[in-house]
Design a protein around this nucleic acid. Structure first.
Lengths: 205, 205
DNA sequence: GTTTCATTGTAACGAACGTTATACTAGTTC
DNA sequence: GAACTAGTATAACGTTCGTTACAATGAAAC
């Protein structure tokens, strides 16, 4: 036994599952420890506090999400499809990370009191970091796809992306990822010079 | 003094503001009472429990939202715009209900552990009720607007609607309501008989 | 074989929270 | 003025939660 990294990962896994399945405040540290199969003391030796644990969960998740998105973009056949690849990434990410029902960053933001005035909350920093990552990257991909107005396209795709995340929480519409893909292609097709957009968008489901 | 209805409303206002600004679990009953300017005992005389208070807050909010949406639909000049009116309703609803940052139903769902098995949670019933209301109504409006595939149009509008709510929480994109309106019109124009939409035909997923 | 390291079990502290009981005040109604 | 109503103030109970202290176990390192 005694592999610190393995223990650490198990705790992070348990926290991620519980926090974003049952709520962060609702989930006690004891339940996280129990789920991970470790003692509470071990959890505190590794992370120091619940808030710190949450921070590390979000950090890990941000990295994992970025990796999934990178892969999806790399796998896309053309610049237009690279823009849509964000929805493929949501799909594979969800498939890989188990039954986490929805976006950890939005869930955290909704549960947490907004930090007042000049106070900087490291957790909110992470949420903002996630938002900025998605925003900037979409704009960059939109430029590469030669959209007439990359900023607008990026904003609309971000809207669709947020819609997918919230829909997965709400349970409706039933297949938001497919809907987002179809809508995104329609949008991209209507605003790029190059192309007669494909008339059939059966897609790479 | 001594107007029970007024007291009741004040408590509901305070609860709505605090619950969906700082989180439900995070907000204590004492803070709600203090914000409403009433004693904790009065709060319990009126609502019996925190969970019951939350239920009534959500109920009132669902009714208010429905009314706003009704008005927006009634004010729209044509069937196509009646479909888009949901986004006008979000705008006026937000303007009227103060700085509540985001959809109370989604926030509640994200904070609350999913009820297991056959257990029925009245709060989750309300959330589901909200989802169903929006879904059915959008489908009905889509039929009235003579969309080729009303169900698909409704699903996409629901996706955009969810996107608006999540975007308002996240703070990006900056003006999600306008973005949603533009996207919705593009979508509706591309699938109704009447208009001369862009050449793309949205595949039926 | 002692030291070191990762981990465990138990117990407890202090704070916050949901909730209730008791006793009290002020206005309304008859 | 008695009865009723709406609300207040204070205190407390039981629970849960985040966190820490203490003593102990077992495996690897030298």
């Amino acid at each position: 036994m005694a592999d610190p990294q393995h223990t650490r990962d198990r705790i992070l896994d348990a926290a991620e599952n519980l926090f974003f399945h049952e709520g962060i405040t609702t989930t006690g540290v004891d339940r996280v420890a129990a789920r991970a199969g470790v003692a509470i003391v071990t959890l505190y030796k590794h992370f120091g506090s619940k808030d710190n644990l949450l921070r590390e969960v979000l950090t890990r998740r941000l990295h994992a999400w970025t990796r999934h998105w990178d892969d999806a973009v790399a796998a896309a056949p053309c610049p237009q499809e690279r823009l849509v690849a964000i929805f493929d990434a949501v799909e594979t990410f969800r498939a890989s990370s188990g039954p986490t029902q929805w976006c950890c960053f939005l869930a955290t933001a909704s549960e947490r009191p907004t930090p007042g005035d000049g106070i900087s909350d490291p957790v909110f920093e992470l949420i903002h970091q996630d938002t900025q990552l998605v925003t900037e990257r979409l704009a960059e991909l939109a430029r590469e796809a030669r959209c007439q107005d990359p900023a607008t396209v990026a904003a609309t795709l971000l809207l669709l992306y947020n819609g997918v995340l919230a829909s997965l929480l709400r349970g409706a519409p039933s297949d938001p990822i497919t809907r987002a893909r179809v809508t995104a292609r329609l949008l991209i097709g209507s605003c790029t010079d190059g192309g007669a957009p494909p008339t059939t968008t059966a897609g790479s489901g």
